[in-house]
């Protein structure tokens, strides 16, 4: 079991410059995540919650304030922090086990150990029998399980989840939430889950961080003092959920016109740029 670390965000701010205008995305975020804790972050679109994860994972480096892992600032991506993206981002040319193995590619262990670790994690997410399947053969929920296995296989101290179940249907989502909870309990990893689903946040989190947009900042941190396994139908569950939802009061969800999607390059047709190639 990894020796989990404490993550501390101190006065974290981030702005983008668009056409010479600076746009504040995150403002003065203070947050401490204890070892083994499950923190949910909720907020409407545009509150910078995805940016927050990208900063913690180390894909974005420019910011003000501090991001400390056991007192040491983050300087880039590292294997001690894993991430599950909203789109599963499996490499379509690799099989399930090869995709999971990607997490161990440079690990200082033998091939046999790698194979065993991969197999264990495929079992962990319940995909035995699908080792040789290619991503296009998987349903959305299964692909997201592979993505979770890939993020866990190198035993990170912290696992970041960026709306991992956002694109899934309600049944699959509820099921995967239980799975994730089981994995969290078993592995004892610190997890930070970004979501726009309040029920999901309350169901999984030790505490729920409610964020508000423009600029993104923390509105309130709601502790969830409910025993596990949590019963979604219970009165106390509902009241915590109400509590969180109340924080959104009056704030209309924002419509976004342009959706960002992963466009995998298909064949580039012989077209204008290739003109007169003959």
């Amino acid at each position: 079991m990894p020796q989990a670390a404490t993550l501390a965000l101190k006065g974290l701010s981030k702005q983008y410059t668009v056409k010479d205008q600076s746009l504040a995305v995150l403002q003065n975020i203070d947050l401490t995540v204890n070892p083994g804790e499950f923190v949910s972050i909720v907020g409407s679109s545009g509150c910078g919650k995805s940016t927050l994860l990208r900063l913690i994972i180390g894909l974005e480096l420019e910011h003000e304030g501090e991001i400390l892992l056991d007192g040491t600032p983050i300087t880039g991506t590292s294997l001690e922090r894993g991430i599950v993206f909203q789109e599963h981002r499996l490499l379509p040319w690799l099989t399930v086990e090869q995709n999971v193995g990607l997490g161990l590619i440079n690990a200082p262990i033998t091939e046999a150990q790698k194979r065993r670790a991969v197999q264990e994690h495929i079992e962990l997410v319940g995909l035995v029998g699908f080792e040789k399947a290619l991503p296009y053969q998987l349903s959305g929920g299964m692909a997201q399980r592979v993505s979770i296995a890939r993020a866990l296989v190198n035993k990170p101290e912290i696992l970041l989840l960026d709306e991992p179940f956002g694109a899934l249907d309600a049944l699959t989502r509820a099921h995967l939430q239980q799975e994730l909870h089981r994995i969290w309990r078993r592995e004892g990893i610190t997890m930070i889950l970004v979501t726009h689903d309040v029920e999901e946040a309350v169901f999984l989190g030790d505490k729920v961080v409610v964020m508000e947009p423009r600029p993104g900042r923390i509105r309130r941190i709601v502790p969830v003092d409910l025993p596990h396994p949590r019963d979604r139908a219970a009165y106390r569950f509902a009241s915590v959920k109400e509590d969180v939802l109340r924080e959104f009061g009056g704030e209309a969800p924002e419509d976004r016109l342009v959706a960002e999607e992963v466009q995998f390059p298909r064949d580039v047709r012989l077209s204008p740029n290739i003109s007169f190639a003959l």
């Binding site: 319940g126 995909l127 035995v128 029998g129 699908f130 399947a133 296009y136 053969q137 998987l138 349903s139 929920g141 299964m142 399980r145 049944l171 699959t172 099921h175 995967l176 799975e179």
Partner: peptide, 19 residues
């Protein structure tokens, strides 16, 4: 596309066969 049978239970051995 291989559809896993619903709900996606922990063990998907049965769904693996059509694959």
């Amino acid at each position: 596309i291989i559809e896993a049978s619903l709900p996606e239970s922990g063990r998907l051995r049965s769904a693996a066969r059509p694959a």
